[in-house]
């Protein structure tokens, strides 16, 4: 039998599509990590909150979809700021592991809140993306995946530009590279913390809306965060470039594993890559290698 090249191309493109979403979410993750050194396990749940807010606004309050998305993103940003202030700020100076566990607890609280308000029944977001199939050459790309990828790419580009040139972005990068020096140079570090959580929550909300549009929303959609965790570790926790490259890479690997081996191999493949990376390059492909001193 001839090798089905078209199949490979389609699977590859699907993988890139999913990878774009991983990259976007990983960007939110890295943002928080760079500014506050918090490994945020609740990132998947922040996605979920964004998607549910959008769902609630669009169905219960009958807002048009675009407005619902905008309001949901702003509301998520505020929720992010509140979470940072209430649960993360008091942990300043505690061991990273304690802070990590706080985010685990937060994840559980967010799931509970969603189930309380919207029940645990799976829902569907109203359709808002174009429905005409997209063909790249002969390969079929599902429109949601295609436009999702475009949105993710555009957003990543905007975010990168902003952090390059905007004052807040510069402050954030300064804080990331050396907190104490940044403080002494007159940068309001607590505000940077707050800012990073706000922006990360907003990015996560957009990712959540796209993920929800593709696969539906439910209180268990936070598991998406597990794959993102792999992405950031592989890419290097503090590397934006790493998040983007690893996001696409993991997306393609998952897709290939699913296409040629079967659905049960998807998670296995990504986590095997994680183990290999941890053994060979524990600080990730592009991460900073920290030298420990006594």
């Amino acid at each position: 039998m001839d090798f089905d090249w078209l199949f490979l191309v389609e699977i590859f493109l699907a993988g890139l599509g999913a990878g774009g979403l991983y990259a976007l979410t990983a960007l939110a993750f890295v943002l928080i990590y760079k500014a506050t050194r918090v490994v945020n396990l609740a990132i998947g749940e922040m996605l979920m909150i964004g998607a549910y807010l959008c769902f609630g606004l669009a169905t219960a309050m009958n807002l048009p979809m675009w407005l619902a998305i905008v309001v949901a993103v702003i509301a998520s940003g505020m929720a992010g700021a509140v979470l940072e202030r209430v649960a993360i700020r008091p942990m300043l100076g505690e061991s990273p592991i304690a802070v990590f566990m706080v985010t685990v607890g937060l994840a559980s609280i967010l799931v509970g809140v969603v189930e309380l308000v919207w029940t645990s029944e799976p829902r569907r977001l109203p359709e808002f993306m174009p429905n005409t199939p997209v063909m790249i050459g002969e390969a079929f790309v599902p429109p949601k995946v295609f436009y999702g990828f475009l949105v993710a790419a555009a957003l990543i580009a905007v975010a990168l530009t902003v952090f390059r040139f905007w004052r807040g972005g510069v402050a954030l990068r300064a804080t990331a590279s050396d907190q104490q020096t940044a403080y002494s140079m007159g940068i309001n570090v607590p505000r940077v913390f707050s800012l990073s959580w706000t922006v990360a929550a907003m990015i996560a909300a957009i990712a959540g809306v796209i993920v929800g549009a593709v696969g539906g929303i439910s209180s268990t959609m936070g598991v998406f965060g597990l794959s993102v965790l792999v992405v950031v570790i592989v890419g290097g926790l503090d590397s934006v470039l790493g998040a983007l490259v690893a996001g696409l890479f993991i997306g393609v690997v998952e897709s290939l594993a699913g296409g040629y081996l079967g659905g049960e191999y998807k998670l296995l493949a990504t986590f095997l890559i994680l183990i290999v990376v941890l053994m060979v390059r524990p600080y990730g492909l592009f991460g900073t290698h920290e030298i420990e001193r006594l």
């Binding site: 942990m91 505690e94 566990m101 607890g105 609280i109 799931v111 969603v114 645990s120």
Partner: peptide, 23 residues
């Protein structure tokens, strides 16, 4: 009907609460 979500919230709140207030 609200039991399960409340349980999930309490579970998370216990983790956060103890870490913040009674490590």
């Amino acid at each position: 009907l609200i039991l399960s979500p409340v349980r999930t919230i309490v579970f998370g709140a216990l983790i956060v609460g103890f870490l913040v207030f009674e490590p």
